[in-house]
């Protein structure tokens, strides 16, 4: 018997039923969405839970809604669905671009936005794009719902601000409006790749000056991070070559990446600045 067969997986048909099942749970690992992370972890010998609750295909988590100021993306929306959802492309281009770099077609068909966020890998591909949107996460439990700003959601390595009885329902992501977004991932190869470093940015320029800047990096810290020092440097300034140089160097001075199997700390530090440069030069 394969290891996943030892897990008692429940299959609620509605969010309410899922919340009821989760009400008494102690750990979050028991929520199973598309399985593209959890099934891999279980198969590779990570501790398996006794029970799991499948939230794949819950209708309440599947929608994308466009509001005047923001887009609400259901946590169960797959990366493939995001890519196909043309109406949101102009509002959240960095997120769509990030989704397109996840795995390949087979993983994109099953991996969900909520799962990617909940897995809380520092290399989670959608996290930097979510961060620069300045949006928030909607969590539900039997006792109600609450909202957590994304920049406070990932609290530590593989930790999120969510209780075991809470389920991520949706992401409320402000539309970019007149700002420009960019996403770039340096991966282990061109497809089916885990990132070595990646950057997402949302920058608004009015009359030649930066009026707002959000830049986030992945794979360079225990959590995805915003580069607030660089953002502060930019706001109110004209994007001159000198300022871009300064932003690149500031990014490199700010980050404290590690060596691992995929890359070196030195390269990651350098590339962090390079991706900031890339974002600023391609607005």
């Amino acid at each position: 018997m394969k290891i996943t067969e030892t897990i008692d997986i429940r299959f609620p048909k509605t969010l309410a039923e899922a919340l009821r099942l989760q009400a008494g749970e102690k750990t979050r690992g028991q929520l199973l969405a598309g399985g593209t992370d959890l099934m891999v972890q279980w198969a590779s010998g990570a501790p398996t839970p006794e029970r799991a609750t499948s939230i794949w295909n819950l209708p309440e988590l599947d929608a994308i809604e466009i509001f005047d100021d923001f887009i609400e993306v259901g946590a169960g929306v797959t990366h493939a669905f995001l890519r196909d959802a043309a109406p949101i492309h102009r509002h959240l281009p960095a997120l769509v671009a990030a989704a397109a770099t996840i795995g390949a077609a087979q993983i994109q068909a099953r991996g969900t936005l909520g799962g990617n966020a909940a897995n809380a890998s520092p290399a989670g591909d959608t996290a930097p794009a979510l961060l620069v949107s300045g949006g928030s996460v909607l969590l539900a439990s039997r006792s109600g719902t609450r909202t957590v700003p994304l920049d406070r959601f990932w609290t530590a390595y593989r930790r999120i601000d969510a209780q075991p009885d809470e389920i991520i329902v949706a992401f409320r992501l402000p539309r970019k409006g007149s700002a420009r977004e960019r996403f770039r991932k340096i991966g282990t190869r061109r497809a089916q790749a885990i990132s070595k470093v990646m950057a997402a940015s949302r920058i608004r320029i009015v009359k030649g000056r930066v009026t707002s800047a959000a830049i986030a990096l992945g794979s360079i810290a225990p959590t995805p991070v915003r580069l607030s020092a660089v953002e502060s440097l930019l706001v109110g300034q004209k994007l001159t070559p000198a300022l871009i140089d300064e932003a690149e160097q500031l990014a490199q001075a700010t980050v404290q990446p590690i060596d691992d199997i995929r890359s070196s700390a030195d390269y990651r530090r350098w590339a962090s600045g390079r991706l900031v440069r890339d974002a600023l030069e391609n607005l």
């Binding site: 340096i186 070595k196 890359s263 070196s264 030195d266 390269y267 530090r269 350098w270 590339a271």
Partner: peptide
């Protein structure tokens, strides 16, 4: 790798 090229181009920074 890109890391190796980076290190060759920036001997002070890279191993």
């Amino acid at each position: 790798t890109p890391e190796a090229i980076f290190a060759a181009l920036h001997p002070a920074q890279g191993a």
